[in-house]
Design a protein around this nucleic acid. Structure first.
Length: 319
DNA sequence: CGTGTTTGACCGGCGC
DNA sequence: GCGCCGGTCAAACACG
């Protein structure tokens, strides 16, 4: 149960157990580990131990801060998910009404001015295991206030092989490319896709490589699918990643757990209707366990954690 | 031959 | 009015 101790840590992470074992086995600490041999007095040893204790406290504090930051981010995502689930069928119908032709754009814009709905930040994790971070404010705040704020806009970030130059994001749906354009703010071309799985599906997708990190594909989805997703991709999708939207200039890429049941993209997935999710201690615990499970499955994380802890316990040991 | 992709042309919004 | 730009169209093309 590696995940449980991390989950419990959300309520007060500490390393006291290690300290107890430390105290109960003083022989494990070489008396000359500072290189001064038997001349080291007990007082010096105590001061060294105190210094170690302070180090561990400091490390404890840093880990607690990291954990609280992750917890806070999870809570933010949770609240966004709640907002996303409150979008109603009537919103969807109105969205569909706004789509028929380009000539209606001007009329729609006038309608938008008096009917501001659903423009809050939303986020959802769909059944295709692609994390979609959706922010109408982020999408429209600086350059696109003219567009319809009711249209569901979400983004997915997918890490690809550097050699892979295609603009294909396998997300379980069937897309038909209808255009490609080089935009001013990004040297890589932007590809335009329509959902071809269902004839009347209004969803569009734009795929472009990130300007900061060309190995990351940024897929922007507009609209909501009016059908279930039973497409079966030929090949497994690339590992989707979540990019911290709070720092777009230097995004933090977090690989998501692809082993979670129900999130597999290769299976036939029927989207569950969006529903209100109540925030509860059980939910928090579940989220923490999932997060801990994801982190502990990452060899890089576990090795780094082990190195950090061993470095604290035995400062002189080689890395 | 049907389907999907490519790519140049076109459209509409916006700023000057 | 003009030019720029993002988005879309549609003919040409590729492929199985």
């Amino acid at each position: 149960m590696r995940s449980s101790w991390i989950a419990d840590a959300s309520k007060g992470f500490n390393l006291d157990l290690n300290l107890d074992s430390f105290r109960s086995q003083p022989s494990r600490i070489p008396i000359n580990f500072m290189g001064v041999g038997n001349k080291v007095s007990m007082r010096d040893e105590v001061s060294v131990l105190k210094a170690d204790l302070n180090k561990m406290k400091e490390e404890n504090r840093r880990l607690t801060e990291m954990l609280s930051a992750v917890t806070e981010y999870y809570a933010t995502l949770q609240s966004r998910l709640g907002l996303a689930t409150t979008s109603t069928a009537s919103d969807k119908d109105r969205m569909l009404q706004l789509l028929p032709s380009r000539k209606r754009k001007a009329e729609n814009n006038q309608e938008v001015k008096s009917d501001v709905v659903n423009e809050s930040i939303t986020c959802s994790i769909n059944n295709d295991n692609v994390v979609e971070s959706s922010s109408i404010e982020e999408e429209y705040s600086c350059k696109k206030p003219k567009e319809d704020p009711k249209t569901m806009v979400s983004r997915a970030y997918v890490r690809t092989e550097p050699s892979n130059t295609s603009l294909v994001v396998k997300d379980g749906y069937q897309w038909r490319k209808y255009g490609q354009k080089v935009t001013r703010d990004n040297p890589s071309p932007r590809a335009y896709f329509r959902c071809s799985f269902a004839p009347g599906c209004p969803v569009k997708k734009k795929v472009q490589r990130s300007a900061e990190d060309p190995s990351v594909l940024v897929a922007t989805y507009e609209g909501e699918h009016n059908h279930t997703n039973c497409a079966k991709p030929d090949t497994p999708p690339p590992a989707p990643v979540l990019i911290n939207s709070t720092s777009p200039a230097s995004p933090t890429v977090v690989p998501l757990d692809q082993t979670q049941p129900g999130l597999s993209q290769s299976s036939c997935v029927v989207r569950a209707p969006r529903r209100e999710i109540k925030y509860s201690p059980e939910l928090e615990k579940h989220l923490m366990e999932q997060m801990a499970s994801t982190l502990t499955r990452d060899p890089g994380f576990t090795s780094a954690l082990a190195a950090a802890i061993s470095g604290i316990i035995m400062p002189n040991s080689p890395a």
